[in-house]
Design a protein around this nucleic acid. Structure first.
Lengths: 99, 99
DNA sequence: CCATCACTTGCGCGATTGCGCAAATACTGA
DNA sequence: TCAGTATTTGCGCAATCGCGCAAGTGATGG
């Protein structure tokens, strides 16, 4: 059986929500760091991207809610990672179209 | 030579703008119609998607500014089409991650 | 020229977004 | 338990978004 048929209304809504989560330079920057950094902490990412920690936490919450990244606790720090390989394809396609 | 190196700051901005253009269910719906319809007029799309013509015109302007669709005039009507094949890969990847 | 159809643009409104800042929560080590 | 570090959450503000509505532009036929 084919995995994906015609996009339903609900499916479009999820895709739109996913695109909205990607529609920010800082969040894309985070994904690039996670793509070759593996796992990174919030403070680490906020330093690399160049924003305050609460702001980064909000961005990461958006990415996590969208299912783009996942997190795990290691002691007092929380490490974020890319949730699925397919996300890399998506970001790649995005950058490719963007030229 | 490799086509795409590390995403610069400006490149991320363009990718983010591209994602923002995709971050709406109606616009995704438009792309689906254009994907297998080839070319469609504004009134046609507004009827299919279910919104008013000015609203559809605005959505199409957003997609065109983002370089996602292109348009040509045929008499008094204007026909929109998907600008590039790579756009299909992008929306495909989007729907795939969205599950 | 004028009426008509197809589309675009300008304007105003409610809703959402990104941000800084302060406060709250969670964990560690002494 | 207490101080210190790591992260999240709440709040308010300026900016942007999606929409409906009215007016403007462009092409066609009489």
């Amino acid at each position: 059986m084919i995995a994906t048929a015609l996009p339903t209304d609900a499916r479009r809504d999820r895709s739109a929500a996913l695109a909205r989560a990607l529609a920010d330079p800082k969040r894309l920057c985070v994904l690039e760091y996670l793509a070759d950094g593996g796992e990174r902490s919030v403070g680490d990412l906020s330093r690399c991207v160049g924003c305050q920690v609460p702001n980064m936490s909000q961005h990461l919450a958006i990415l996590r809610t969208a299912g783009i990244v996942a997190s795990r606790r290691d002691g007092s720090t929380i490490l974020y990672r890319i949730a699925d390989r397919s996300v890399l394809d998506l970001v790649g396609a995005l950058h490719r179209v963007a030229g």
